[in-house]
Amino acid sequence: MPLGIVIRKAPGVTRWVAHVWKAVAVLPGAARADWKELRRDGETVEYHAATLPLELFRTDTEAYLHGLSAKVPAIYVVMRPGTEGRPLDIVLATASPYEAQDYADTGEELVEKVPMPEGLIAWIRDFVEVHHEDEVFVKRRRDKARVDRKEDGIGDARIRQVADVYRAPTAKERVH
């Protein structure tokens, strides 16, 4: 599903930061856009920065369920510092909190949490109902083999005495 990303530019609160950029909304089914101005209120401006595909995968339904069960279900927008005259490059929009965490862990991207519209919640929930399969927990069983009885690699193989395998061999015990 095409998903429009709305970015807000607001004045900074300190003299070191001129502007603050924040993802504030998503527009399901949006047309293509490239930093199209949507609204202006004084120095605060909202842009339809980009339209990205929101892709859902059968193997990630557990992550989508986790995201939908949050107090406020969200879409995660991944952004990088801009290139080609843009303030930000919008990299990805995902419904998976696990994937968003992976991007946040790198520290190279900015990850913003944007509330999910009701229609998008329903669309993702329908997808999960069709494709989700609970994984059966299989407890791993130990091998019955006793590996603790062998003493391979312990001590010096040149010593024939069992009593102290850690002592150094004497000159008459050395094997040539």
Score class of each variant (00 low, 15 high):
E173D: 09
P169L: 00
L56D: 06
L38T: 07
P117R: 02
Y166M: 15
T51P: 03
P115H: 06
A31H: 11
A30E: 07
A100P: 03
V13C: 01
P11Q: 09
R58K: 15
D164V: 01
L27Y: 03
G153I: 03
D143C: 15
D148T: 12
H19T: 10
T170S: 13
V24W: 04
E151N: 14
R158C: 06
R141S: 14
G82T: 04
D143E: 14
L38R: 10
E37F: 05
V20M: 12
G107M: 07
A10N: 03
V45L: 02
V128T: 08
H132Q: 13
I90E: 04
R149L: 15
V111P: 01
P73E: 06
R149Q: 13
K113C: 08
P53K: 09
V78G: 04
A50G: 02
K36H: 11
A70L: 13
I5C: 05
R160M: 09
K139S: 11
P2N: 15
R140I: 12
I90G: 02
D156F: 09
V24Y: 00
T44N: 06
S96T: 02
A74D: 01
R86N: 13
K9N: 06
A25G: 09
H176W: 12
D102Q: 10
R39S: 11
K172C: 05
V130W: 04
V45Q: 00
I124A: 01
P87F: 03
P28C: 12
E129I: 02
G42P: 00
L52N: 02
R32T: 07
D41F: 02
H19P: 05
V162F: 11
V17R: 14
A30M: 07
R167Y: 10
H19V: 10
V147Q: 06
I121A: 05
V91R: 02
P87D: 03
I154P: 01
P28T: 11
T61P: 01
R158T: 13
H19E: 14
L68S: 08
Y47L: 00
D34Q: 13
R39Q: 13
I154D: 05
R32P: 04
R146I: 10
R149T: 13
S69V: 04
M116P: 03
A33L: 02
T61L: 01
V147D: 05
V128P: 01
R8E: 15
L52P: 01
T61Q: 02
L3K: 00
V165F: 08
V13R: 09
G4L: 03
R141K: 15
A25W: 05
T59W: 12
D164T: 05
R125D: 15
G67R: 05
A93C: 14
W123F: 14
A145K: 12
A30W: 06
R140H: 12
E133V: 15
H66V: 09
A95S: 13
H66R: 14
T83S: 12
A63G: 11
G12Y: 06
K139H: 09
P115T: 06
K113S: 15
I121D: 03
D134K: 13
G155A: 11
I75W: 01
F57I: 02
K36S: 13
T94V: 12
A30S: 15
T83P: 02
A95M: 07
A171L: 11
V17S: 08
H66Q: 14
L110N: 10
V91S: 01
G82C: 04
A49P: 00
E112F: 12
